[in-house]
Amino acid sequence: MGISADDVKYVAQLSRLEFKEDEIEKFTKDLSSIVGYVNKLNELDTEDVEALVNPIYIENDFREDDIKDSLDRENVLLNAPEKEEGYFKVPTVIEG
């Protein structure tokens, strides 16, 4: 199963990334070679094998719901690219 330039453009859109034409070409080549390699897994019959998401099973381990200090607003906003009056500033999302 190869990867086409159209696949790359579609996945780029899902990934919220954009590429120039020559980059599309390079990524198509790179991803085709990687996907070609990982297709190796199809050699294995895994019909009855269970999927393993986490290497070690950990039971849900709940802590007490105590009130603790959290970061203050000013600290949290310190790294914001744009902020205003204690909020993150974003472009207009809903047209008025």
């Binding site: 990982v38 897994l41 199809n42 294995l44 895994t46 094998v49 269970e50 999927a51 393993l52 998401v53 290497p55």
Partner: peptide
């Protein structure tokens, strides 16, 4: 999902 299954086998 295939990779998660093979992960079981590696483990």
């Amino acid at each position: 999902n295939k990779a998660l299954k093979v992960r079981s086998l590696v483990k």
